[in-house]
Amino acid sequence: MTATHSFSTLVPDTILDAVESTGLWSDSRIYPLNSYENRVYQIGIEDSTPVIAKFYRPERWTEAQIREEHQTLLKLKAAGVPVVAPMVFNGDSVLRHKNMMFCVSPRLVGQHPEADNLDQLYQLGELIGQLHHTMSAPFVERINVSPLTHMETAANQILMGNGLTEEHQLPEKLKPVYKQQIAKLCDMSKAAIGTYWPASLRPIHGDSHRSNLMLHNEQFHLLDFDDCQNGVAVQDLWLHITQTENPRQQLSEMIEGYETYLPFDLRELTLIDVFKSARVINYAAWLQNRWDDPAFNKAFAWFGSEEYWVNHLNELKHCELEWGEMSK
């Protein structure tokens, strides 16, 4: 890592010192987990099970936003919702070491959901419904979702190529078609939002893809609330749709499970394409925005080539061509 990057000081001794500052005694085993936005490690503990230490990316969230995430998780756990909540040390879960915020959580062992498993999709719907029912009060510190704004901001960032060398930027020859494609998706999104947008937003997980769910002791648990926000219920469901020919079969299973706890407004299905398009655009902008992080250079070495940008444009075109399939 370069000495200037925010995680450059996060060397093994620092990681172990941080964990041991809680009173836990490590056995010096450190195993990095698959996380790039933050840094997450499994830490071996003497005469006990390992724990998970998560070091927050500086300046991404405020301390108040992180505290609200933790308070929510602790309340959910107390209410019997299967989540992984941070551990509390001396009355606090938001910990600091060398000006870096971190938390420690129990390790959960299990399997991620199986794609296309309808029984599991029903269970996932139940879990999301239970989550939304329990998280009734909107977040105060967390962001409110605004997909159209996010799309436009991310697309403008990509077009500007901020922080990228010329070889990684969107090629000039592709910019006209990129602008055209973004404009088309923004127009379609405006139309969908104009047709239906909820009167009020609800607190949601915000990034409930398969890797953030774990089947443990025959029960699904939700992990990693780093992106929790005020949003729309369908945001926590649509990421589990893997079929393109008949997505309603998968949706119906999740919605049936969800309605064990809460009614689901079917008008939200018209917003799936909006969130899908926003996710595709935001992912490319996220890679660009984090390109100064050496971990991204290594893990996403394919980013920024002309082939990458052509594929990105193809993804955006597919978003347009598949528009409406989810809500048929």
Rank of each mutant, 00 (worst) to 15 (best):
V81L: 09
Y56L: 04
R107C: 14
T9F: 11
T153D: 13
S28M: 13
S252L: 12
C186S: 15
M100Q: 10
V83H: 02
K184V: 14
E307N: 08
T72F: 04
F55W: 11
L127K: 02
I52V: 14
I204P: 01
F296L: 07
V177F: 03
K276W: 08
L266Q: 12
S26N: 04
Q288K: 07
L213K: 01
H312Y: 10
L213H: 07
L108P: 01
K190Y: 05
S48K: 15
V232A: 01
N246L: 13
L266V: 10
E315S: 13
I193N: 09
S146C: 12
D224G: 02
F296P: 12
F264E: 05
W323T: 00
L201I: 01
F300Y: 14
E256Q: 09
A183I: 06
F7N: 03
K175R: 15
T22I: 01
S211H: 13
Y258I: 00
Y31R: 15
W302G: 05
V94Y: 12
H221E: 01
F102W: 06
T14H: 14
T22L: 04
Q250P: 04
Y31L: 14
T49R: 14
E253W: 04
I281Q: 11
N297Y: 10
I66S: 03
V81Q: 05
A183H: 11
D293L: 02
P58F: 01
D17F: 08
E315Y: 11
T260L: 09
T72W: 07
Y122Q: 07
R67N: 12
A191Q: 11
W302L: 08
W309L: 05
K184L: 04
R202S: 00
I43N: 02
L118P: 09
Y308F: 15
S8Q: 06
Q229H: 09
S189W: 00
N99M: 13
N246R: 12
M151F: 02
G324V: 11
G324P: 00
A295C: 10
A53Q: 07
L10T: 04
L266A: 09
L131W: 06
A64E: 15
S189R: 02
I128N: 06
H132T: 03
G304F: 01
Q111L: 11
Q288C: 03
T195I: 06
A18K: 04
T134G: 05
W286P: 06
V81T: 04
H150Y: 13
Y258M: 03
M160P: 00
G23L: 09
V40W: 03
A137L: 13
D92K: 15
Y308L: 00
H70P: 07
W323H: 03
V109C: 12
D17N: 10
E306W: 08
L73M: 09
M151Q: 06
M188E: 15
Q181N: 10
Y31M: 12
V19F: 04
K190D: 08
E259D: 08
S8E: 02
D92E: 15
R29G: 06
E306T: 08
S136I: 14
